[in-house]
Computed example of a mutant assay.
Amino acid sequence: MALSSGRVRDLCEDDLLAILRKYLPSASGVVVPSGDDSAVLPVPDGRVAVSTDMLVEDVHFRRGWSSGEDVGWRAAMQNLADAVAMGAVPISLVVSLELPGDLPVVWVEGLARGMAAACALCGTGVDGGDLVGGNKVAISVTVLGALEGRDPVLRSAARSGEPLIHAGVLGRAAAGMALLGHGYARRRAAFLDEESLAIDDFLRPKPPLRQALAACRDGAIGAFMDVSDGLLRDARRMAQASGVWLDIESTRLADSIHPLIGIGRRMGMADPWQWALETALSGGEDHGFLGTLRVHAERAWGLNTPTLPDGFTRIGTVREAHDGGLVTVDGREIALTGGWDHFGGA
């Protein structure tokens, strides 16, 4: 019997590992690949950025909505973004899986293919991990990122007067999740409608990894972080860490808000414009990047205006120092709603 034609319960751990290894890449220059007690990797400058994230079935994804490829892509991509948010190049992922016995093996193959496709964007390997049986699919991914001799970029580095900048989409994933909840499905066609594009952005987030890394390498970035839990929630974390007041200008979010208005209208929202604004400000799971431009505002927007890093737009300004941090929209403080939080706090 071909291994991929059965169920997970029909295979032993070595069989499953053989299937996964068939698809998953190794890090460049890996010393000891998957298969021993630990993988051994070369580190160019001796400093590694490390982050771990999890995806749990029926908490972060539903198999009725997501294919194995979708889940593998998303599991890899959210961790790649965490490394890049520190200015580090993702060199390897360590992946542990909990798999129920009745899970089709072809779904596991799809997960590996999706993960490999995401890793290919950065040349990242998958080197080591663990497999356990369980009642639902759960995926734990640890990313190792090389800083290449640079200092890490931190969310605590925002300075008064700096422009607030963002790369990626805002509100698209939240809109896609809302559409799925309203019974919409992603179309498979050469040209996707706005609904299908939003659903795809939820199922397969597309953080601008290369542009973010390029900006960090060029020294253009002051403070920096991944936006995974919603713009307002993550901006507040940056403001608190830096002790500053961040002011977001709603007019600068027009390109993000405009396509969401039509989606809100088609879902029957009472005020599609207000829904679109709130979704752009508070929707999570986009995995874009929020940062500050390392130049004072008076020089940034005067006669010698510098070019923003590729892929970034200005969305506001670091106004001034503020004990405890403050985030406003058009100068007004807004109650924190929406976004993603497992436990209800910030």
Rank of each mutant, 00 (worst) to 15 (best):
131 L>C: 07
110 G>W: 00
103 L>Q: 04
214 A>D: 13
335 A>G: 12
56 V>C: 12
222 G>D: 04
34 S>T: 15
49 A>Y: 02
177 M>C: 12
94 V>L: 13
167 A>D: 04
83 A>I: 05
346 A>G: 03
75 A>K: 03
171 G>V: 02
75 A>R: 01
149 G>K: 07
77 M>H: 05
130 D>L: 10
88 A>K: 04
334 I>Q: 14
307 T>I: 12
86 M>N: 06
123 G>T: 11
197 L>V: 14
210 R>T: 14
154 L>P: 00
17 L>D: 09
50 V>L: 12
45 D>H: 09
81 A>L: 05
49 A>H: 08
159 R>V: 12
99 L>A: 08
184 Y>A: 12
262 G>M: 05
82 D>S: 12
45 D>R: 00
89 V>I: 09
171 G>D: 04
110 G>M: 02
316 G>W: 00
244 V>M: 08
241 A>M: 03
128 G>T: 07
179 L>E: 08
194 E>W: 07
295 V>I: 15
241 A>H: 01
190 A>Y: 13
6 G>I: 04
16 L>P: 05
238 M>S: 11
32 V>L: 14
287 H>T: 00
311 G>F: 10
181 G>H: 13
150 R>E: 06
117 A>H: 13
314 R>H: 04
132 V>K: 12
86 M>Y: 11
319 R>V: 15
129 G>W: 11
343 F>A: 15
72 G>Q: 03
330 D>S: 09
109 E>M: 10
62 R>W: 00
127 D>I: 09
92 S>A: 15
326 L>E: 12
22 K>A: 13
104 P>M: 03
85 A>R: 06
296 H>N: 12
228 S>T: 11
245 W>N: 02
284 G>T: 06
71 V>K: 04
127 D>T: 10
259 P>T: 06
108 V>L: 15
94 V>G: 10
189 A>H: 08
299 R>K: 13
99 L>C: 07
135 N>G: 14
284 G>R: 11
201 D>K: 07
214 A>K: 13
168 G>E: 07
282 S>G: 09
3 L>M: 08
279 T>M: 07
30 V>Q: 08
232 L>Y: 02
72 G>A: 07
79 N>C: 12
1 M>W: 04
313 T>A: 00
160 S>Y: 01
165 I>Y: 07
1 M>S: 13
87 G>R: 04
34 S>A: 15
329 V>E: 09
149 G>W: 06
128 G>W: 08
271 D>L: 05
338 G>Q: 02
133 G>L: 11
10 D>W: 02
344 G>M: 05
311 G>Y: 07
145 G>M: 10
305 T>M: 12
128 G>R: 04
38 S>W: 14
41 L>E: 10
164 L>N: 06
261 I>T: 11
46 G>F: 10
47 R>H: 06
50 V>S: 12
45 D>L: 00
161 G>P: 02
183 G>K: 03
211 Q>S: 13
93 L>M: 01
346 A>R: 15
319 R>T: 09
266 R>Y: 00
259 P>R: 08
309 P>S: 01
141 V>H: 03
82 D>W: 10
130 D>E: 11
198 A>E: 06
102 D>L: 14
39 A>P: 00
332 R>S: 01
308 L>W: 07
302 G>H: 08
214 A>V: 05
151 D>F: 01
312 F>N: 01
181 G>E: 15
129 G>I: 06
290 L>T: 03
84 V>E: 11
208 P>L: 11
285 E>N: 13
143 V>H: 05
74 R>D: 00
344 G>V: 06
123 G>C: 11
337 T>S: 14
